Amino acid sequence: MASWLARHGIQPTVVERASALRLGGNGVDVRGDAVTVVERMGLLPRVRELATDVRGMQFVDATGRAVARIHTQDPASPEIMRGDLVALLRAATDVDVLLGDSIRALEQDDDGVHVTFEHSPARRFDPVVGADGMHSNVRRIAFGPEERFITFKDHYFAFADTDAALGEDRWVTMFNTPGKMAGIYRSGNHAQAKAYFMFRSAPLDYDHRDVAEHKRLVSEAFAGEAGWRTRQLLDSALTDPGFYFDALGQVRMNSWSDGRVVLLGDAAWCASPASGAGAELALVGAYRLAGELAAANGDHRVVFPRYDAAHRPLVNDKQQIGPNVRLKVPKTDGGRCVRDVVARLPLMKAMSAVERRAQARNARPLPDFTRAA
């Protein structure tokens, strides 16, 4: 968003709670219109160079024997590690960045928004864009408590750095017991691998910023799980200070704007990691919002409804996560057996093709805002 605004001659300020650029995270897919957006930024060659080169997903039994494989690699839709994408975007963006700070209060009037920060002096802005994730601070201040907008999808997940020797090169390997999944993501172009954990649960009460508590919850969920390499993966992941844990949830809102405040990315429409669409939705949404702001000379009364109407059909499609969770975390042993049989059939590839065609039919055309840049 900041990069496109700067290209349009609008000078934004980025506020980031972390004290440094956060380069962690897992693999993200650049697909659909997001490929066009990245190409228009001039970054597509570098995205392809840094692609993870992961062939697909494989499911293993307790001994490590592969019982099913799904090839997901698509040369037209590169997958890149989130940290690599962040670094590319930052290098392409020359804007003011406030690190180690956060917004404390927003006061709107007819001429702008008075923003109070936790540490920096207060400043005024024309619009404020909240792009601060599922647990958005901006959304809480401007729209209300997150409980009004987040729908819990019955699972929790975690990922962290782990020993690459525990996984097979160029595959996402998963092992299941009823309601649980332990796995490892090993890119062909990266020395570092990622451990994955997901488990079915009733809602848990925890602080989403307390990493020590997150590690305890995952350890308890997988206590006694000794099959495959689950114990080794967990022991390795628990040593990573960047250990990430959260609920599998979706953000659903009737409107993404209130006056001069507007939401973008997971803050507005988190489709959950099960959708595999977080990067696509964020890249396309940011491109549309920045382009509409430039085209309408910053008139938020015109821009925000246009942005909502154009982008919401894609969001609605991607929030229909369908069988993705059941595929990765079957509830029962019987469900796992059925999953393994289905995964061995060409049906999965055909279903994906049908889904892509349906989304293409429902998608709104992507305007070429580069002419205004």
Results as ranks from 00 to 15, higher is better:
167 G>I: 03
35 V>H: 02
108 Q>T: 10
354 V>M: 07
24 G>C: 03
12 P>M: 09
139 R>P: 04
326 R>G: 12
51 A>K: 14
271 A>P: 00
139 R>F: 07
179 G>F: 00
9 G>K: 11
47 V>W: 00
279 A>M: 08
56 G>T: 02
125 F>G: 11
275 S>A: 14
299 D>T: 07
171 W>M: 08
55 R>M: 11
84 D>S: 13
1 M>I: 08
176 N>P: 03
126 D>G: 14
279 A>K: 03
157 F>W: 11
155 H>T: 04
14 V>W: 01
220 E>M: 06
314 L>G: 07
164 A>S: 13
151 T>W: 11
39 E>Q: 04
98 L>H: 14
192 Q>Y: 06
230 T>C: 09
181 M>K: 02
216 R>F: 05
300 H>D: 01
99 L>S: 11
153 K>S: 08
193 A>E: 05
81 M>G: 11
66 A>M: 12
55 R>P: 03
119 H>V: 13
68 A>M: 01
310 A>N: 09
46 R>H: 10
306 R>D: 08
1 M>Q: 12
192 Q>H: 12
341 V>W: 12
300 H>V: 15
230 T>L: 05
200 R>K: 13
219 S>W: 06
149 F>G: 07
157 F>V: 05
318 K>L: 15
327 L>N: 00
216 R>W: 02
348 M>N: 02
6 A>M: 11
269 W>C: 10
154 D>V: 00
111 D>P: 03
222 F>D: 00
312 R>Y: 06
252 R>G: 10
289 L>W: 04
210 D>I: 04
123 R>L: 15
271 A>F: 03
299 D>P: 01
259 G>E: 00
240 D>T: 09
319 Q>V: 07
100 G>T: 05
213 E>R: 15
19 S>H: 15
164 A>N: 04
217 L>E: 07
90 R>S: 10
148 R>W: 09
241 P>R: 10
283 L>D: 08
23 L>D: 11
112 G>S: 05
263 L>D: 01
